[in-house]
Design a protein around this nucleic acid. Structure first.
Lengths: 142, 142
DNA sequence: TTCATTGTATGCTTGATTCGATACAATGGC
DNA sequence: GCCATTGTATCGAATCAAGCATACAATGAA
């Protein structure tokens, strides 16, 4: 009997929404990132085998494989030969430069939108503090 | 002689980058939003006719039409029969609720990304202040 | 009324993306 | 060495998005 049929794991929280517009593999990536960022998936922890997760989420194994592959490229997970896929020990070793570029893009988009909505920068900062409180309270979704 | 061949206008600042990945109509929308948000395009001001702008930017008129249409849906511009397309008088009359939802989405995405990158919330706020300074210095692009 | 000027509608082409099906490769416990 | 279990590779169908070409409709100044 496979481990994944019995053990409780943070991945049981994952839900994919077929008609959400967002690609399935991206939804999966993001939810895994959430779980990692919030510590519910710890470094070293094993993710379910591709086929097992595919069956649980009722999608094609290729879809899971793609999510795992992309996460590996981002160094968020490691694949160990035939053992499985594991959450990386190291933090998120995207190049600092690259990380910063991504954040800057997001910040710029946010500021432009806010300006359009006549929300001042202090207003944005206030909103950030609000949302930070909400997100770190253990809510996975909005 | 058409008005748009002679008058100086903020829209002369617009540049589309064919190989930028971002769709042309979106680039145009965003640059117009910038110009409106920064006051360089004033309420009531007329935008160039679709064909004129298309020629200037060397794209298909349909592409301009699409940008104008989307901006109209967002109530940022108004079309007046055969007169042309004008910057809306009203601010940005998306429902407050809707505006807030959009901002919350952006903020959440930003915070998740930041957390993933081990950037603290104060770090995010600092970055916001940096970028705000840059963006309000009159730079149109990053 | 005419017609120049404005935006609109529709359909096509191209390219990319997503997801699935299926066969393959590699490894390590037994 | 075998083979169960892991991830990999490759191809195909369907869908979608972007941009373009082109014909159309509406209006108002002359």
């Amino acid at each position: 009997m496979a481990q994944w049929e019995t053990t409780e794991s943070a991945v049981t929280r994952i839900r994919l929404n077929q008609k959400d517009g967002a690609p399935l593999y991206l939804q999966l990536m993001n939810q895994l990132k959430y779980l990692m960022a919030s510590g519910r998936l710890q470094p070293g922890e094993e993710l379910p085998p591709i086929r097992v997760l595919a069956e649980r989420l009722v999608v094609n194994p290729s879809t899971i494989a793609r999510a795992y592959r992309e996460l590996e490229i981002e160094r968020l997970v490691e694949k160990r030969s035939t053992h499985g896929t594991f959450v990386s020990d190291v933090g998120s070793p995207l190049a600092e430069i690259e990380q910063r570029r991504i954040l800057i893009d997001r910040v710029d988009a946010l500021l432009v939108e806010a300006k359009q909505f006549r929300v001042s920068t202090p207003g944005v900062i206030e909103l950030i503090q609000e949302r930070d409180a909400v997100l770190t309270e253990g809510n996975l979704v909005k």
